[in-house]
Design a protein around this nucleic acid. Structure first.
Lengths: 237, 237
DNA sequence: ATATTTCGTGTATTATCAACACTAAGGCTG
DNA sequence: CAGCCTTAGTGTTGATAATACACGAAATAT
């Protein structure tokens, strides 16, 4: 009850059920070969010791986005990371202890940038998406949804660069997209396509670590990218 | 606390905050001209009397999907309707009374099929998406997200038919897609495109209500549609 | 009979996608 | 230092899909 202008008004809210709301993060990284996800050995009951997504409970005074950001930072030490809400999972018995609804977010990070200490501290590990162990609760399903969302998003917006270092080679970029969609592109077609999008700049520097000849480094250009519609990467297997 | 194998285990759950979880439904319909949404004059505080999406609170023993279905049925009398989760909205002060997180779903219904009685009973009304009044809380934002999702989905899956009667004319179908994307298609190109998808059957019947000549009726063929990849409707303005 | 309205259809042009193979650079090795 | 080896870098052609575009047919109303 509450008083407004001298009238008593009753909110229906008081009689409604409250639930626990959690956030789980699918943290994607890329190691030059495979698309990977960061998993932890769960440190508390239930299902202690089993592999799990990183997650946590929503606090009263934060948004889901803030919670996802907080959790990501807790486990990787990173800030300012691209994240996107995937879906909210609400099967009644998805958590055996108590009714818990969970909203999944995925994050794209440069795999070299996260804190190695934290990884150790939480018994965390990177797994290739295709070789990840079975996870607790409905986390496997969350990954499938996140992957689907990532694939759709990456096809129409230039988010892949978040998974690479600031400077990257054309070959790295190609391997990344091949990993995201589990496919192969023709090298020449890929270069032509990317260049036609006009969203990355070729630098004068070369990366000498993977070949004697060296390969040019590129850099994502957010300005250029803003001014144009990114069209799908439609390239054949 | 709980006993398992004689050991006491503590779940962290007990100390976590619980919140109210609501579901709001963006109910889309199509009236041969405009894409419309069903709104109600809110019958309780806060914001009583203002326009709002239809919604309700999640109950302890139901999933979000079940809640969305229940709410849709409550306001339209309809069952077995295409629905899709859009996003979960969690701004801390989105509801002024109490912290409430809300998951939005959109539904596609044949606008002629819903219960007129219920509409009256709830002081509900159909509004063109482009002419809808300002809504309470973050409901305007929910509609924008739903619309975006609908546009993406309709571009790659044959869900538009849920907005039409079972039998429809090619012209109706075209107007529907024009309404969804707020664009115009060339009549000949549209027909060619739809026919190439091979997912609707031409009937022998004609609809005589809109022209002297009459126009052929078509019917969605779910079987055919299942056996092929639906490709985007890529047609120019 | 003729006027009016909406229906229904095909082709030529352009843009995008897909297939395809060789030379260049530079360090390494004998 | 000559040849070797590995990865980088690049262009053209044919196939497919998207777009632009206009007129006759049917049926009712006058």
């Amino acid at each position: 009850m509450e008083q407004i202008n001298g009238h008593e008004i009753t909110y229906q809210y008081e009689t409604e059920d409250k639930v626990l709301l959690a956030v789980d993060c699918i943290i994607f990284g890329f190691d030059q070969e495979d698309l990977k996800i960061l998993l932890i050995k769960r440190g508390f009951e239930p299902e202690m010791g089993k592999w799990s997504l990183v997650g946590g409970f929503l606090k009263k005074e934060e948004t889901l986005e803030a919670a996802a950001t907080r959790i990501l930072n807790l486990y990787t030490g990173l800030d300012n990371i691209y994240m996107e809400q995937v879906d909210t999972f609400s099967e009644v018995d998805r958590d055996p202890v108590e009714r818990t609804i969970s909203t999944a977010y995925y994050a794209l990070i440069d795999i070299k940038e996260h804190s190695k200490n934290l990884i150790q501290q939480f018994s965390a590990n990177w797994f290739s998406v295709s070789k990840a162990p079975h996870l607790i609760f409905d986390h496997d399903k969350m990954i499938q949804h996140a992957l689907r969302r990532l694939r759709n998003r990456a096809a129409t917006e230039p988010i892949g660069f978040d998974l690479l270092p600031e400077k990257f080679t054309m070959r790295q970029l190609q391997k990344l997209y091949e990993a995201i969609w589990d496919t192969k592109f023709d090298k020449r077609n890929f270069v032509n396509k990317i260049n036609s999008l006009n969203i990355i700049d070729k630098l004068d520097e070369k990366d000498m670590t993977t070949s004697r000849k060296g390969s040019y480094l590129y850099q994502f250009n957010a300005e250029k990218s803003k001014t144009q519609d990114i069209r799908p990467f439609g390239l054949k297997i």
